[in-house]
Amino acid sequence: MSRPGQLSHASLEQAAHWYVRLQAPGGALEQLRWQTWVAQSPEHLAAWQYVQRVSQRFAPLLEQPHGASRALRSSRRQTLKTLLVLGVGSTLAWGTWRHSPLPRLASGWSADYATANGETRDALLTDGSHVWLNALSALDVRFDAAQRLLRLRFGEVLIDTAKDPNRPFLVDTEQGRLQALGTRFSVVQGDEHTQLTVFEGRVRVSTLNPHPRIVDTGQQLTFTRNHFNTASVASPAREAWSRGVLLADNLPLGELIAELNRYSPGHLGCDPAVAQLPVMGSFPLKDSDQALHLLQAALPIRVERPMPWWVSVGPQ
């Protein structure tokens, strides 16, 4: 699960701080201070809800009959009561839901192919084409006698198309339609744009813009519904993830951490103070601990773990 993009690093860290403090008995005063903090702003409430959602992944680990677990369970009961008082079912809560990744992820439950946090998947389609889905992605397949159509709902897909001169191979995103011309390529569905990277062959891109674009081998293009950005050199990173590798070539640390977060069962956050540090190298996508160890050895950063499932990267 990715965190809602509108929440600040500071609010998320404060919410995690409160979660840790509430694991230990603190009395009514501590509960009152926490409730006051949550009620201060919609962002605090949204950050607290996010911490709760992430923690639910680890709930089975907290069911051991020792004091800390009992205190945490008690804290959770109080949390539920307070969130009800603050209006989880209110317009505010709906706004948090609507602008978070959850509705989009829920839409993937009905997709033909979908992946969860930390999961990748590859499949051989009926025409012989091969597709790889990155973490947190959803894809529909609609093949008939006239065409082969994929619809990328969200996330990223790498495609190696099979030849079929009688049926074009098409990929639809929210921003346009791609037609493969004997091709190996990747497609990323962003919030407001599509990114296309062509490794072999060519791809025709059609949008609301009346002039389609042809993207050649070794090119990368980002586009919206009516605008094409300038094509750039294809990034090998858009293919390396299918092999479990995260490639960084002057990639900002914040973007690298966000990518690792897609493969982490918990939360990985990056302080804005270090988010623009450039990163070079290759990192294991599915071993975030090792990746963070490598990053900490190479950069002036500090990795903090206030909880086993909550990791924050900040200045040294």
Rank of each mutant, 00 (worst) to 15 (best):
A258Q: 05
V38I: 07
G26S: 06
D127L: 05
A68Q: 09
A237P: 00
A146T: 12
Q290V: 15
L299E: 05
M307T: 01
V313D: 01
W132F: 12
V233T: 15
S129W: 05
L299R: 00
Y263L: 12
G314S: 14
L72H: 08
V198R: 01
V85I: 10
E63V: 14
E63R: 12
R53C: 09
V54A: 09
V215K: 02
L253D: 01
Y19C: 13
L12N: 06
S264W: 01
A145S: 13
L150D: 06
S75N: 05
A114E: 12
A16W: 02
A135M: 06
V38Q: 06
N117Y: 05
A234Y: 03
S8V: 07
T183M: 05
R104K: 14
R243H: 10
G27Q: 10
T194M: 09
V85E: 11
S206G: 13
L221E: 03
S8Q: 06
L256C: 07
H99F: 14
I301Q: 04
L133Q: 00
T82Q: 14
R153G: 11
L150Y: 06
V311T: 11
R238C: 12
A291Y: 01
Q220H: 09
A46W: 14
F283V: 04
T173I: 13
Q23G: 09
Q189A: 15
T82G: 11
A298I: 07
S242K: 02
L294N: 08
L124M: 11
A248L: 03
A114D: 11
H211F: 15
G155W: 08
D216M: 08
T224D: 09
K163T: 14
Q31F: 12
A135F: 00
W97E: 14
L294I: 08
T194K: 08
L125V: 01
A28H: 11
N166W: 14
S110N: 10
A234W: 07
P210V: 04
H9A: 15
E43S: 11
T183C: 08
S206K: 06
G89R: 06
A135I: 00
A145K: 13
L260V: 05
G182M: 03
S129V: 01
F58W: 10
A47N: 06
A46S: 12
T36P: 08
R104W: 14
S107P: 01
L170E: 15
S8R: 06
L61R: 07
Q56W: 04
L136C: 01
G5E: 15
A111Q: 03
S110H: 10
R21E: 09
K163Y: 14
S129A: 02
L268H: 03
D164G: 00
L80R: 06
P212N: 10
A93S: 11
T173L: 09
